[in-house]
Design a binder for these strands. Sequence first.
DNA 1: GTACTAACTGGCCGACCGGTCAATTGCTTC
DNA 2: GAAGCAATTGACCGGTCGGCCAGTTAGTAC
Lengths: 201, 201
Amino acid sequence: MTQKIQTRDPELTRARILDAAETLFVEQGFSAVKLSALARSAEVTKSLIHHHFGSKEQLWEAVKNRAFERYFTAQMAMLEEAGEPDAALLRSSVEAYFHFLRDNPGVVRLFAWTHLEGDNHCGELDNQLVGAGAEWVRQAQKRGLLRSDVNPTHVIAMFVMTCTQWFEAKCHHQHWPGIGSDAAFLEDFLKIFMEGVTPRG
Amino acid sequence: MTQKIQTRDPELTRARILDAAETLFVEQGFSAVKLSALARSAEVTKSLIHHHFGSKEQLWEAVKNRAFERYFTAQMAMLEEAGEPDAALLRSSVEAYFHFLRDNPGVVRLFAWTHLEGDNHCGELDNQLVGAGAEWVRQAQKRGLLRSDVNPTHVIAMFVMTCTQWFEAKCHHQHWPGIGSDAAFLEDFLKIFMEGVTPRG
DNA sequence: GTACTAACTGGCCGACCGGTCAATTGCTTC
DNA sequence: GAAGCAATTGACCGGTCGGCCAGTTAGTAC
């Protein structure tokens, strides 16, 4: 088989470059990253980066594609193992989303950079996820398990945006007086959110 | 008095540079902005930028300071003209904050860039605002006008983060299937949020 | 008017940016 | 083992980046 004890390993090299690039892009964004620093960090020559990825811009695309693929894979998996659409499902979805972001801070920052760039990257996949989520809310509404006087997409948007912003601007609000831990905030958010989407007789 | 029909006007020059810089920084972030382009845009020479602001970094600080000062002035004004702490005040605060962000998209993006930079700039002033907001929530809770089993700071954080993210990532979720206008989203958010913070007997 | 200061200019600088290229080296195939 | 090719190297490129500086000019104080 493919003996991997060798002096050349293009796939490993690609992976090393991608990993180092993701780290730096996540930290600094596209413009601030220098190819020379990236090469040093990945322990390859600059030329090798161009050989494997063509240009800085194409490397940036490759990094985003890989990260977003991971994101969508995880989200789709969560979607598929979900059960009947009801309030309990909504709550566990929020929790799952929150924990995913907590455990993948790089993804959050990558999203943020692309948002600021006005990049509408990964639009279709995202629409698919949100569409599926909204559809579940709609079903739960029909069954009277969630209040039906709100736009289902807005229900999804509301918790997605809150979770995203919590981690995206953490450096900013972590010093707010009285602010709690991740877990404490999630708990309070869920209290308010779940109470807010509960139908009233 | 100070005749302003003159060939030299340092204050105007400073303002022209600051304005052009804010526009470019808001669009592209710090690293992507070139001093040469900025000079062209402000219709001054590059040297003049250095003369008035010292360096690119100091100019960036000046731009942020000016924008954040506007932000805090507006927020403080809103705070002072507020009345008794109750649910109606909370609702109108959310509306006011939402509309402020809608009308000042530059501020939103500036905040976003600084968050990503890990800049804890403007920490004290912000803490002050949040602290005051949380204190009002606390008072309303004591009077039984808001549910008291949630952290007051989290109540503030929740709506601030939702509003922020709505405008910050607009390019991203504006294409989500079924998403509504600014007004429609705000209405649905308020329905859920206000219902969520209402005390239950 | 003279002296002084600050605003402003144009030219220039070293550093370093992203990117190219010819040459070399290690694998694979036959 | 010869041939062919992709991986890899290091030297090198033109461009332009942020910043500096000597010199000029407009306003001000006396």
